[in-house]
Design a protein around this nucleic acid. Structure first.
Lengths: 152, 152
DNA sequence: CTTGAAAAGAACTGCCT
DNA sequence: AGGCAGTTCTTTTCAAG
């Protein structure tokens, strides 16, 4: 487990908000020099605290206005393996995230579609036909807010 | 709504996987020159297809080994406003994501904690005391896989 | 840790097909 | 639209205090 001091936490928080910021700009905001801040970022990357850098897409702007979270309980009968389910789910392009979870559901999926009609198509033809699928529950996303988190 | 061709989609896919790649490197993989690829990325940013760039933290490496998804149904009685709930939730550092949803729940929260004991503390002292909170359901994350999505 | 500077690479610009 | 050549800017690395 990686130990962080206040400056490390501030750096991670800043980069989580906007990863285009330069080491110099972040350092300036913290009272650190550019090389000092840069070395900290490098260290955090090498230690594995920073897993990677990604762009965030605006699904709405790209014509995918509907995001739905599905909770899926596998049917007890049939002994369909989790691997079969995961393989089949991975072949559905509309599935953005697959979460294996413990609780009332076995899997949670984040699904995006162009509109409700499109989502119905995905649900009926792709989701309901997954191997071993039992109960399915849906929650439609209205709005979403990301927060820095405890680390972080 | 932004129209994308195959090259745009390939660029977004590449940057979603790893946003450290340079325009030159991505272009080379697609048979585009550095400026051509750079202009496409710029256009996608200005059109709003790319909402931003963020680092991805490794919660496990940072000592937050437990991630739990909470579904929360507000109590019908009391007429507590969504704003009150959202304000109170925003003050809990362990909450990473707040999703306002439609369906069996009103809100979905992504919560991270150091361990199960730590999560219990958050649940009892922070979550269950939120204004207007009714039914709460939890799913513990075992593993998670992100996929490119339909766009994307 | 700092400042300063140099080298490498990426971002950006103009012009041309 | 895309490519080429050039300029400008960061990022990255190093030297020295």
């Amino acid at each position: 487990m990686i130990a962080l001091d206040d400056a490390d936490r501030a750096i991670l928080r800043a980069l989580q908000r906007d990863a285009t910021q330069s080491a110099g700009a972040i350092g300036r905001a913290l009272g650190l020099s550019q090389p000092a801040c840069w070395r900290r970022i490098k260290r955090l990357e090498e230690a594995g605290a920073i897993a990677g850098r990604r762009i965030v897409l605006d699904a709405e702007a790209l014509g995918f206005g509907v995001t739905v979270f599905l909770g899926i309980k596998l049917a007890a009968r049939g002994r369909v393996s989790l691997e079969d389910f995961e393989r089949a789910v991975a072949a559905i392009p509309e599935v953005q995230v697959v979460q294996h979870v413990l609780g009332r559901f076995d899997y949670r999926l984040r699904v995006t579609a162009r509109d409700i009609a499109d989502f119905e198509r995905v649900l009926r033809r792709r989701i309901m036909t997954l191997p071993g699928v039992g109960q399915v529950e849906a929650n439609v996303l209205l709005s979403e807010e990301r927060r820095p988190g405890p680390l972080g």
